[in-house]
Simulated assay, not measured.
Amino acid sequence: MSLPPPHWPIDFKTTLMRAILYVLFIAAITQGAYLEALYMPELRFSEYGFTELTQTAVLATCCLMLLYVRHVLKVWPTVTLLLFAFIASSLVREQDYFLDEYVARHTWKILVALIVIPSIAWIVIKRHAFLDEFRHYSNTFAFGLFAGGVLTTYVFSRLYGRSIFWQAVLEDNYVRDFKDAAEEVVELLGYSLILFATLELLLLARRMHLRRKASQTLL
Rank of each mutant, 00 (worst) to 15 (best):
F146W: 13
D172V: 01
L189A: 13
D132R: 11
A28C: 08
S157R: 03
P5G: 09
V69N: 11
Y102A: 03
L189M: 11
I20A: 13
P5Q: 12
T153Y: 05
P77E: 05
K13T: 10
H128L: 05
T107A: 14
E94Y: 09
Y154S: 03
L35C: 00
L66Q: 07
V75P: 00
T51H: 01
K213M: 14
F45L: 02
K126H: 14
C63M: 11
E171K: 14
H71L: 14
L67D: 03
P4S: 09
E47T: 08
R18M: 06
E187C: 02
K13C: 03
W108N: 14
S138I: 02
I26C: 10
E47F: 09
T78C: 10
I164R: 05
R158L: 06
A27Q: 13
A182S: 15
T107D: 00
W166H: 15
I123S: 13
A28L: 15
L3G: 01
M1G: 10
A129P: 00
I115E: 06
A33W: 02
F25I: 11
V155K: 00
L3Q: 14
A104T: 09
A168S: 13
E183L: 07
V103K: 01
V69S: 08
A60T: 07
A19R: 11
E183S: 13
R70H: 10
E200Y: 02
I29Y: 02
V92A: 06
V23C: 12
L35D: 10
F146H: 05
L131Y: 10
G149H: 02
M1Q: 08
E133F: 02
T61M: 14
S138V: 05
R212W: 03
I29F: 11
F86T: 15
P5W: 11
T198E: 04
V23G: 03
K109C: 01
I164E: 15
L91D: 01
K74N: 14
S89G: 15
M65H: 04
L188E: 07
I20M: 12
D11W: 02
L38W: 03
R211Q: 13
T80R: 06
L159I: 13
I194Q: 15
L159E: 11
P41S: 04
W76I: 00
V23K: 07
I10Q: 06
W8G: 00
L188R: 05
S138L: 02
F84H: 13
T198K: 02
L114W: 11
L131M: 14
I120G: 03
A19F: 15
W76P: 00
A28M: 12
L73A: 10
S157I: 03
R206N: 15
K74E: 15
I10S: 06
V92D: 04
F196C: 04
L159Y: 12
E184M: 05
L66M: 14
D180W: 10
M208V: 10
V69A: 12
Y102F: 15
L59K: 12
Q31F: 12
T56Q: 12
V155R: 00
